[in-house]
Design a protein around this nucleic acid. Structure first.
Lengths: 235, 235
DNA sequence: TCACGTATTATGTATGACATAATAAAAGTA
DNA sequence: TACTTTTATTATGTCATACATAATACGTGA
């Protein structure tokens, strides 16, 4: 009997610690939708007694839920269920010096995907004021020869505004976390091909399309606008 | 002197707890890129002595890092630096019964954005085998009248395969987490407008375009394919 | 040289004590 | 009575200590 068959015939040994089990317990407790945001969960000592483990274990399990943003605990009140901030929790890990290169590259890619794919939401939800704001931003668009940092700030202002227009706060939050990673990948030696500064569709060109074009046109224009980045990923 | 001026003249009081401080300490330790993945960090007792706090505080701070996926701790070995699994950490929170409605809706939207925006990566990285696999999947495409669950499985197989083709594992992981949310939003009363089953570009149509078309064509086709979902979000 | 048992080490778990903050109850005052 | 102040209660936050457990290193004997 070879190794693969063996693996199928044996049950997985439960190697999880006490804390793991309690955590799983609590998570399923939360997921049974009898409980809503704001509802309190049992006190540490109650849980310790009920589950037959020490308060230390309970605390560590609850600590995990707290770090994940699933609960919040206040003195005297105990712990209450909260609606987690999905991307907020990610921000501490989203650091170029901590992530491995493959992940960094993939984050770089995801940004490109998002900006091309969000066209419909921009067109659906944009307001007159948004267009005015975009016009204001592009009026300061620096020439490609400008100093790097200046360009970066302009990039952030313009593209950040686009995310804002989609009205999708989670996507916006994700983007702001992606920014330093994107910048890092762009300038570190991670991408082998050199940085190109060929001129494609400009920010102003994109705004023109937003005003007079269609989502289809915008997607293609954005794809073109990002060509310098794509060129470094492909081939 | 009014309240606003007062606020400007006073420094912010440092309200962070001991654990917060230790955590910040450790994070900066990790971010100094002298340390690589796999390197060990000091033992709990050493840290407790060095920083002058109890082991409990150290453990809680390290626990946070562990939950975020920045470190892993093993008995005897101590804690070592790991490369965090950005989206993996999110999965426990990504539950329809825990998230609030607005967030759920935004996750629904992000899926649409990703699938439209990822065209270039599909075209760049697809192989003959991938196309064969897609063909195999669409050959089982059920009629729209089929039972819900059957359709869902087919949807997952097809769209999941597309993510896989992009070669972006993080995006794929994100997608698989999004699946239950998407399904929930689709069928719960969260979106006011009724579910439409109008026929637009089919999965088979998408595969044809992948084989003979271009990223531009694919984006538009995917947008069309997802029209039933967009229609429920927009007016 | 290898196998096996033993010591060591760092995390995991348990327990008890006290600090602190938020709330509820009680007491006091107009 | 109504309203403020004080006091008690309660549940989490922090600290300290002891022991359990698992992984590793060491040493002994064949």
């Amino acid at each position: 009997m070879d190794a693969i068959e063996l693996k199928e015939n044996f049950k997985e040994v439960d190697t999880s610690s006490l804390v793991d089990k309690v955590e799983a317990n609590l998570v399923t407790l939360l997921q049974q939708r009898k409980l809503k945001v704001g509802d309190p969960i049992p006190k540490e000592l109650e849980l310790a007694n009920t589950l037959g483990v020490s308060r230390t274990v309970i605390r560590e399990a609850m600590l995990r839920l707290r770090v994940m943003g699933l609960i919040e605990s206040r003195k005297k009140k105990g712990a209450v269920i909260t609606s987690p901030d999905l991307f907020g929790n990610m921000s501490k890990s989203m650091n170029p010096h901590i992530l491995d290169q493959e992940t960094l590259k993939q984050m770089f890619e995801i940004r490109l995907v998002l900006e091309i794919g969000m066209a419909d939401f921009i067109f659906q939800r944009i307001t007159k004021e948004d267009i005015a704001a975009l016009r204001e931003i592009v009026s300061h668009e620096p020439p490609a020869t400008q100093h790097h940092l200046f360009n970066i700030e302009h990039e952030i202002a313009f593209h950040g505004k686009l995310y804002e227009i989609t009205g999708n706060e989670n996507m916006k939050k994700f983007q702001s976390m992606l920014l330093p990673v994107f910048d890092y990948v762009h300038h570190s030696g991670l991408l082998k091909k050199p940085i190109s500064h060929k001129k494609f569709v400009s920010h102003k060109g994109l705004v023109d399309i937003i005003e007079n074009g269609s989502p289809e046109l915008f997607r293609n224009a954005m794809r073109n606008h990002l060509e310098n980045h794509f060129a470094r990923l492909f081939e």
